[in-house]
C-alpha cells in the first residue's frame, strides 16, 4: 500500500466532512469557533474517559463483556457531555439574543440555530474520525497494510475508516436532532439520539466475533443512514412549519 491508499482511507473517513466544512461552516467565523469548541469538548471527554479506563487497560481476555461495559460507560458519558454542551450553547444563545435586541437586529433564526448545531455535531464527528481513524493511519502510508486477526477479509484501515465515516454521520446529525429535541422539549428526539449512539456502538461489538466486520460495518453505515433520514425529516418538518407560520402571519 502506498500514499494513495492512505489518502483514500483518510478521504473515506473525512470526505463528507470536507464539503460540509467548506460549504457551510467555513463561511462564518462563529460556526468555526463552535466547531473548534465542540472538537475540544470531545477531546476532553475522551481524555477523561481514557483516564478512568486507564487502570483497567489493556484488556487481555478475549471476552466481550469488558468492551460492552466500556462502550456503555463511554456512550453514557458522551451523552452527558452533549447535555453540558447544550447548556453552554443555551447560555450563549441568550447572550446573543439580548445583544441582538440591544442593537435592534433580529434574533437568531431557525436556520442559524440549526447551523450552529450542525457545526457542533461536525466538531464531534471530526474529532472522532481524527482520533480513532486518522491518527492510526500513519502506517497505511507505508508499503504494507494491516489485518486484524478477527477480520481477515478487509484491511484494518479500511474497516476503521468506514466505521469512522458512520460515526461521523451519526455524530453530526444526531447533534442537530438532539438540539432540536431539547429546544422543542420533545421526548422522542431526546431519546432517539442516545439510543442511536448506543446501538451504533454496540454494533461495533459484532466486530469482535471472527469475521464479524463483514456484518457489523454495513450495519453501522445503515445506522448512519437512519440518522440522516430522521434528521432530514425533522428539519424538513421544522422548516415547513416555519414557512407556514410566516405565510399565515
Amino acid at each position: 500500500m502506498t500514499v494513495a491508499a492512505g489518502l483514500g482511507y483518510a478521504l473515506i473517513a473525512l470526505g463528507p466532512a470536507f464539503p460540509l466544512f467548506a460549504g457551510v461552516v467555513a463561511r462564518k467565523p462563529f460556526l468555526v469557533l463552535t466547531l473548534l469548541t465542540s472538537t475540544l469538548f470531545w477531546l476532553i471527554s475522551l481524555i477523561i474517559l481514557s483516564g478512568v479506563w486507564r487502570v483497567f487497560l489493556p484488556i487481555r481476555s478475549g471476552a466481550w463483556w469488558p468492551y460492552a461495559i466500556l462502550i456503555l460507560t463511554s456512550v453514557a458519558f458522551q451523552e452527558g457531555i452533549r447535555l453540558v454542551f447544550w447548556r453552554i450553547y443555551k447560555k450563549m444563545e441568550e447572550m446573543l439574543d439580548s445583544f441582538a435586541d440591544r442593537i435592534s437586529k433580529p434574533r437568531l433564526c431557525l436556520t442559524d440555530k440549526m447551523l450552529i448545531s450542525l457545526a457542533g455535531g461536525l466538531g464531534h464527528g471530526v474529532a472522532h474520525a481524527v482520533f480513532f481513524c486518522l491518527s492510526l493511519l500513519t502506517p497505511a502510508f507505508g508499503r504494507a497494510t494491516f489485518y486484524v486477526e478477527r477480520c481477515s477479509r478487509m484491511p484494518f484501515f479500511l474497516v476503521s475508516a468506514i466505521i469512522s465515516l458512520g460515526f461521523l454521520v451519526i455524530h453530526t446529525f444526531s447533534m442537530i436532532i438532539a438540539f432540536n429535541g431539547y429546544d422543542e422539549r420533545k421526548r422522542s428526539e431526546q431519546v432517539f439520539v442516545p439510543v442511536v449512539h448506543l446501538i451504533a456502538s454496540v454494533m461495533t461489538l459484532i466486530n469482535l466475533a471472527p469475521g464479524g466486520c463483514v456484518i457489523g460495518t454495513p450495519l453501522l453505515c445503515f445506522m448512519g443512514a437512519v440518522t440522516l433520514q430522521y434528521c432530514w425529516q425533522m428539519v424538513w418538518r421544522r422548516l415547513s412549519e416555519q414557512q407556514h407560520r410566516q405565510f399565515s402571519s
Binding site: L70, Q78, V148, L208
Partner: peptide, 8 residues
C-alpha cells in the same frame, strides 16, 4: 479499543 474495532 480501535485495534479491536470497537468504537463509540
Amino acid at each position: 479499543s480501535s485495534t479491536n474495532l470497537v468504537m463509540f
